[in-house]
Nucleic acid binder design. Structure first.
Length: 575
RNA sequence: CGGGGUGUAGCGCAGCCUGGUUAGCGCGCGUGCCUUGGGAGCACGAGGCCGCCGGUUCAAAUCCGGCCACCCCGACCA
């Protein structure tokens, strides 16, 4: 038994009021529950309760990684700048990388991630295909000097992360490593008791062939998940495709003509002014990359997806053009661009434009639009493609079902790196034929601290946190109530000891507090089960077992408390 | 980085505009009494570089300047 997990001695400074600087629910609750305290912007201390929850997640991750054949290491957090120069990221990484110099004026940085260190480690000691595959991971504090840390543990600068790296002899072998991690991640988040989706993510122009994100579903999530309601297709917003609707036979379209639209430059304005639905407007977006300007046509009610255009054009930087560029390209001011008569610029159109029929578009002159514009008749595009964000109700690209949008919190990311780092840093091996080849790498991250926050975003009510049992800092809290009563106190000690003896982590609220205070704190800190020991039930030799989630209370014999908890634990995870 | 906001007791806040005794309130904390099934009550008490530096003034939490810290917002416009 553990004699020290007693509230009278345990450092859990709970708060009655929300801290002024907390915005999201997980941040507020973790502060109020005495789990974390802020040291400075984006940097938090973990108090015993918070650290216990964090370690629960860590341990689940550790077990699943080990099970998948990965090996745990621990890499330095302080890294020499020269390694980053070698990989080419010293110049590229930007201000997120916290750099500093040592006393000898040599460059160093705090590790935001460990591709360089791990690649350096492996290249020194692994030379043969006989030693591959190799999968190494660590659980460690990362530091990223975020522009704007926010939302407590959700987007901190210092945070706990599991990062893993696989090394393989071939692309095919790397795919095996990748899928092992994919399965391990599914196990991790399922074991944590979270509702999540694994989604396809954009891998970027250099990122290799594919990438997946693991998203915990929560309305307060920063990211949007697009998922099919029929099949298991799911992707993040940047990546999500949608089925192409069959082109509708173009309605009879009168001759194109110009109308005055004074001051109406936004879709909303034009739509109202001309009394035309946004679906019949053509948005003409002028973008600019390092290769010059490009025009993209999007249906009025759709939203541009910059990443898709970027990938299509295979450019590095792409953003909305400034107003001067727009005037140069279209001859008209911002807000009145249109495809008709555009010259000297590549014209891309989203699939939906093909079936728009009869549309309204900017006239490329101030305060004027064109109506009865017919694609194909009145203008020609250079290329058609998928350039927009998915919307709820769009057809699924796989099965034709309907897509739905969810909010999510990114807690895991799988990335097939390929040979990017092994090439740059010369991590090579000899294959069975004696030929030298670069290793094929993958990297795999899990935001441990963010997972705890995400779990709370997903599992709470007006009284506080509702921890899923697998990641709860304690499984049971024993709460003796009623004035100092030796019999009750002894019974509480007894139940507490019994639970520990059966491997059930238990907190005993032995404080000399009124029942209300104890109940409020127990609810706030979110322990899944509360065993209340009071006079009335005790008279019959019973205690109350209360489920934090359902709030249901049942009377059980004192002697049956342990099996009852075990039983309800199983019921919880079976849900 | 740009824009906005806030710094007063451990936490949450008032006071500042219109300068002037000993800087308040709620929670929390300590002691005592009382109370004991959903954050009780009474009494007494401890606790403050009013973010920092400078200026104005007989006098600054309050006015002015600078600095620092923290919080919020920052493509959707074609």
């Amino acid at each position: 038994m553990n004699r020290f997990m007693k509230m009278s001695r345990f450092f859990v400074p709970t708060l009655k009021e929300d801290p002024a600087d907390a915005e999201v629910i997980s941040h507020k609750l973790m502060m109020r529950a005495g789990m974390i305290r802020k040291l400075t912007a984006g940097i938090y201390s973990y108090l015993p309760l918070g650290y216990r929850a964090l370690r629960k997640v860590e341990q689940i991750v550790r077990e699943e990684m080990d099970l998948a054949g990965a090996q745990e290491v621990f890499l330095p957090m302080v890294q020499p700048g020269e390694l980053w120069v070698e990989s080419g990221r010293w110049e590229v990484y930007g201000k997120e990388l916290l750099r500093f110099k040592d006393r000898h004026d040599r460059d160093y940085c705090l590790g935001p991630t460990h591709e360089e260190v791990i690649t350096d480690l492996v290249r020194r000691d692994v030379r043969s295909y006989r030693h591959l595959p190799l999968n190494l991971y660590q659980i460690q504090t990362k530091f990223r000097d975020e522009i704007r840390p926010r939302f407590g543990l959700m987007r901190g600068r210092e945070f706990m992360m599991k990062d893993g790296y696989s090394f393989d002899v071939s692309d095919k072998a790397a795919d095996v490593s990748y899928s092992l991690m994919w399965q391990a991640y599914k196990n991790v988040f399922a074991r944590c008791g979270l509702r999540f989706r694994a989604v396809e993510a954009d891998s970027g122009p250099i990122g290799g062939s594919f990438s997946h994100e693991f998203m915990v579903l929560a309305d307060t999530g920063e990211d949007t998940v697009v998922a099919c309601t029929f099949c298991d297709y799911a992707a993040n917003m940047e990546k999500a495709e949608m089925g192409v609707p069959a082109p509708v036979p173009s309605e009879t379209c009168g001759p194109m003509r110009r109308v005055d639209t004074p001051g109406a430059s936004t879709i909303e304005d034009v739509s109202k002014f001309l009394n035309v639905k946004p679906e019949h407007l053509i948005k003409t977006l002028i973008l600019r990359s390092e290769r010059g300007p490009v025009a993209v046509l999007i249906r009025g009610d759709h939203e541009l997806n910059l990443v898709k255009v970027k990938n299509h054009l295979n450019v590095m930087d792409l953003d909305f053009a400034d107003s001067r560029t727009i005037e140069e390209v279209t001859g008209g001011p911002l807000g009145f661009s249109g495809p008709v008569g555009l010259k000297n610029v590549d014209l891309l159109a989203d699939h939906a434009i093909r079936s728009i029929g009869c549309a309204v578009a900017g006239a490329n002159e101030k305060d004027a639009h064109l109506v009865d514009v017919n694609p194909g008749r009145d203008f020609h595009v250079d290329r058609t493609g998928d350039f927009r964000c998915a919307m709820g109700g769009d057809p699924c690209p796989r099965c034709g079902g309907k897509l739905q949008l969810f909010r999510g919190i990114e807690v895991g990311h799988l990335f097939k790196l390929g040979e990017k780092y092994s090439e740059a840093m010369n991590a090579r091996f000899l294959d069975a034929e004696g030929a030298e080849k670069p290793m094929v790498m993958g990297c795999y991250g899990i935001g441990i601290s963010r997972t705890v926050a995400a779990a709370i975003e997903q599992n709470h009510d007006e009284d506080g946190i509702i921890f899923p049992p697998p990641i709860a800092p304690f499984t049971v809290i024993v709460t003796p109530v009623g004035a100092k009563d030796t019999e009750i106190e002894e019974a509480a000690e007894h139940v507490y000891a019994e639970l520990w003896a059966n491997g059930i982590e238990t907190l005993l609220d032995d404080r000399d507090e009124r029942p209300g205070v104890k109940f409020k704190d127990a609810d706030l800190i979110g322990i899944p089960f509360r065993i209340t020991i009071g006079k009335k039930a005790m008279a019959q030799g019973k205690v109350e077992l209360r489920n934090r989630k359902t709030k249901k209370v049942e009377l059980v014999d004192i002697s049956a408390a342990v099996p009852a908890v075990k039983d309800r634990l199983e019921a919880w995870s079976a849900e």
